[in-house]
């Protein structure tokens, strides 16, 4: 009996067009980025802000270094 049902399911599955299965799962989306309550987005935003601040500090440091070079000549 169980085998029969399994065979039935298998034949049904094979008869179903592949596109239909794909539609059931929904279109392909960047789901990993939204997993676990979308925390990765928060991490991304914080990293962007911190990268901005770090870049700002580096540029400021470079400008001051340049001025120091000019003044020491």
């Amino acid at each position: 009996m169980k085998n029969k049902i399994n065979y039935l399911l298998l034949s049904l599955l094979m008869a179903t067009p592949m596109g239909l299965i794909a539609q059931e799962a929904g279109p392909e989306m960047a789901d990993t980025f939204r997993a676990e309550g979308k925390i990765y987005v928060v991490v991304g935003v914080l990293l962007i802000i911190f990268a901005g601040i770090a870049t700002y500090l580096i540029r400021l440091d470079r400008k001051i270094s340049k001025l120091e070079k000019v003044n020491n000549k």
């Binding site: 925390i39 928060v42 991490v43 914080l46 990293l47 911190f50 990268a51 770090a54 500090l57 580096i58 440091d61």
Partner: peptide
């Protein structure tokens, strides 16, 4: 300076 940036970035990522 780069070490400081890396350590804080690490704490932002792993902290969350």
């Amino acid at each position: 300076k780069v070490l400081g940036i890396i350590l804080v970035a690490y704490s932002i990522i792993m902290g969350l």
